[in-house]
Computed example of a mutant assay.
Amino acid sequence: MGLAHQIQEKYHTLTKSEKRIADYLLAIKGQAVYRTMKDITEEVKVGDATLIRFCQKLGYSGFSDLKIAIAKKEFTSQYDEDIDYKYYDRILENQVKVLESTRKLLDSVTLLKAVEAISKANYIYIIGVGSSGLAAAALEQMLLRVGVHANQTSDPHFQAQALSLLGPKDLVICFSLSGRTKDIHDSLLIAKENQTPIIAITNFKSSPIAELGDIVLQTANEEFFDGGALAGKISQMYISETLVRGYEIKNQIKTVELREKVLRSIIDKILD
């Protein structure tokens, strides 16, 4: 049973304030999974207790339980379709769609500011946790190939220690699809205290992590139930590639010569 059907069944039992919540959720549909309690209570102008009572009337323990149910329903519907469909085509279509959506969100002025920040920074730290930690590690390697020395870590304790030593002439680049990863947010607060510039790479410009960023580059993939899926990584890698290529162009890096040098350093490690 979907959320719309559950709301329709219970609508006559809802108070006036609860009906406003119901109408709002019906309007935004699946996007509800990317909202917080604060988002909804401020938008609908109700208290937390009203939202919780609304969720309980629908049979859920609270708002988080409701969001999981919505995400589970959408995820199940998508995978049920794969039975009668070439699932590998759907996966490819999704990746292409995410790349196209990320490109539409990419602003050339903001990108240039990010490239300039990388160019000016004395020291660069790249942070992320979970699958976003993999994106941070990949960007570190990509930057190294164009002569930029940066360090990354997905360990929250080490992030805190490292960022506490940075200053205004350094740079932090962070990855968080949701923009609400607590460990990343906590680390960025330390960087903010030290007036260290922050490039935030995230889905949502209104998220807590984006609000801490001096420069925000948006990814386009939305993962709630299927965290760590390929689409999110591809979106992050696309942003990373544009940053690295932008740096090469701005700084007139001799790309071929530099990449040849890097290749020669590792070619002996390749088996014949």
Rank of each mutant, 00 (worst) to 15 (best):
L3S: 02
L3G: 03
H5L: 10
H5C: 04
I7M: 08
E9S: 06
Y11A: 06
H12V: 05
H12W: 09
H12Q: 12
K16L: 11
K19T: 01
I21M: 11
I21V: 14
D23P: 00
L26F: 13
K29D: 11
G30M: 01
V33M: 01
Y34A: 02
R35T: 00
T36Y: 00
M37Q: 14
I40D: 00
E42D: 13
K45I: 03
V46D: 00
D48W: 06
L51V: 07
Q56T: 02
Y60G: 02
S61D: 15
S61F: 12
G62T: 01
D65W: 13
L66A: 06
A71M: 03
K73N: 11
E74D: 10
S77T: 08
Y79V: 01
D80C: 03
D80E: 14
Y88H: 11
E93D: 15
Q95G: 00
V98P: 00
R103L: 13
L111D: 10
K113W: 04
K113Y: 02
V115L: 06
E116P: 01
A117R: 07
K120Y: 12
N122R: 14
Y125A: 11
Y125H: 11
V129G: 05
V129W: 08
G130I: 12
A136N: 12
Q141C: 04
Q141W: 01
Q141M: 09
M142I: 02
V146F: 02
V146D: 02
G147K: 13
G147C: 08
G147L: 10
A150M: 09
Q152L: 05
Q152P: 03
P156K: 13
F158M: 11
L165W: 14
V172D: 03
C174Y: 07
L177A: 07
S178Q: 06
S178H: 06
G179M: 05
G179H: 06
I184N: 04
I184L: 04
D186S: 08
L189Y: 06
L189V: 04
I190D: 10
A191E: 03
A191P: 03
K192V: 02
E193V: 07
E193T: 11
N194G: 00
N194S: 09
I198W: 13
S207C: 06
E211V: 02
L212K: 09
D214P: 02
I215N: 06
I215F: 05
V216P: 09
L217S: 07
F224H: 13
F224M: 07
A231V: 10
G232R: 05
K233R: 12
K233A: 14
S235N: 10
E241G: 04
T242M: 15
T242Y: 08
V244D: 05
V244S: 07
V244L: 11
R245E: 14
G246Q: 05
G246P: 10
I249D: 15
I249H: 15
N251F: 13
Q252G: 05
Q252F: 12
Q252E: 15
K254H: 14
K254V: 07
T255V: 14
T255E: 02
L258V: 08
R259F: 14
E260S: 11
K261L: 13
V262L: 13
V262F: 15
I266S: 01
I267Y: 15
K269S: 06
I270T: 06
D272Q: 08
